[in-house]
Design a protein around this nucleic acid. Sequence first.
RNA 1: GGUCCCAUCGUCUAGUGGUUAGGACACACCCCUUUCACGGGUGUAGCACGAGUUCGAAUCUCGUUGGGACUACCA
Length: 478
Amino acid sequence: MNTFDSSSRLRIPPSPTGSLHLGTARTALYNMLLCKRYQGTLIFRLEDTDKERSKSEYVSDIINGFKWLGIEWDEGPFRQSEHSFRHKLVVQELLNKNLAYECFCSQEDLDILRAEQRKNNQAEGYDNKHRNLTIEEKENFRKLGKKPVIRFKLNENEDIIWQDLVKGEIKINTSDLGGDPVIAKENGDVLYNFAVVVDDHDARITHVVRGEDHLHNTAKQIALYKGLDWDVPIFGHVPLIFSEHKEKLSKRKHGDIANVSNYKNKGYLAEAIINYLIAMSWTYPEQGREIFSLEEAIEVFDIEKMSKSPAIYDQNKLEWFCKEYFKRLSSEEVLEKAKEFFKDKETIINFSLYSEQELISMFSLVKDGLVKIIDLEESLNFFFQDTIEIEKSSFDDLPQAFDILKTMHKLLISQEESTQDPKKLLNTLSLKTEIKKGKNLFFPIRLVISGTTHGPDLAESLRILGNEKVIKRIEKVI
RNA sequence: GGUCCCAUCGUCUAGUGGUUAGGACACACCCCUUUCACGGGUGUAGCACGAGUUCGAAUCUCGUUGGGACUACCA
């Protein structure tokens, strides 16, 4: 059962009530994959019916995030708020058809009702009390200064059934939907479940692919489609991204990892994020294939092969993808990306301190194993620092450390040896000091030039740093 | 509480009635390396449980358990 073709119209409908969420990006990505594969049309719509919470800064964050990731759409961005006139018309239509009604229950009434239901172990929800208010009753409420919300009349005890693209048949009874849903607030603003139906219908959306947290909304929305006598789109509910504690990833609780801009700001590779996001819940048909481009995924992406269960966000796996992508880049490319990344940032990395050739050598030392551009500050900082801070105690477990350094200093000063032939320098040192174990020879030198025993290849590092810097650093210690 | 979804190594997954249950990440060990990495190799580790259907069940059915989502005049 493949329902997609070139007449398919899908959508990405983020809400600008927060910055771009990783899960939003992922469902957008799935929608785009499907659209591109079947040459359908992708509509971008901002769900900004909540005027209080929607902010223009979030709009640009979301759009920038999508652009950065390479998520493209065909139509839009549209704003749901632009359709408010149309929304009100449809509300009126529902009212006229007696499919919706005015409800004067106050928030307090509802709270009391819910508390009561909870106490009695009943399902919480509105009891549809105001479904059949007489004209007089309504007038009385109005005289009391009460303003109504509009509720949509759900058919009683009706099974809403649909064939979900990823979950299979799903059946939810209207009596389990928490009472007649409010479609328009007291102030006339329409609510999500209503606006989304009108907008999707007007945009001639054929497939709604979204997170499984919308499962119950879908039942409400199908009821609305039916009430309005509109064609019901095909639905697909993809699994959620979980945190390591197996709960829905949220920006409030999980901060940076849920925030797309965080990845961008730290210099992650968008291609790696995309690959990880796809691979999270879907497997490339070729056995064992994990690394694939967006273009390759578009060729073969299939929503029916989507996992049904949530994927736990795995930083290790993400970082593995990141490393794989950096490995596939040349040193020159990584250097270019770094220059671009650090361009407007305050950073220790000063590209004018070394020649282009030296920079390329430097980057080739750390390129493999790099997760994100910002990590370069840590792995490369010793090339740029004026003085290296070293804990004196670091030398404690290294016998002959000062012997090595003094010898090295002498060799360099006398120009018997040079950092430009680091292998020979190191060899001579090993012979002169009679140190066999590499660690005892290398660690003191590492400490002196970088302040740490971990880092890029020592010989190459010495060569790039050059005699002058190395001599200076040794002199600070001996 | 109610409704719905989900269930293969710690994690992501392959598997659609007959497999020594495969791969990847992570972890451990070994090799390579006069250091650090990279790379290569090996290993530890899984079908939640119980019935049923069947000659045969990770795979089909039911139940149990566990986890999650939803349950707004948010989206």
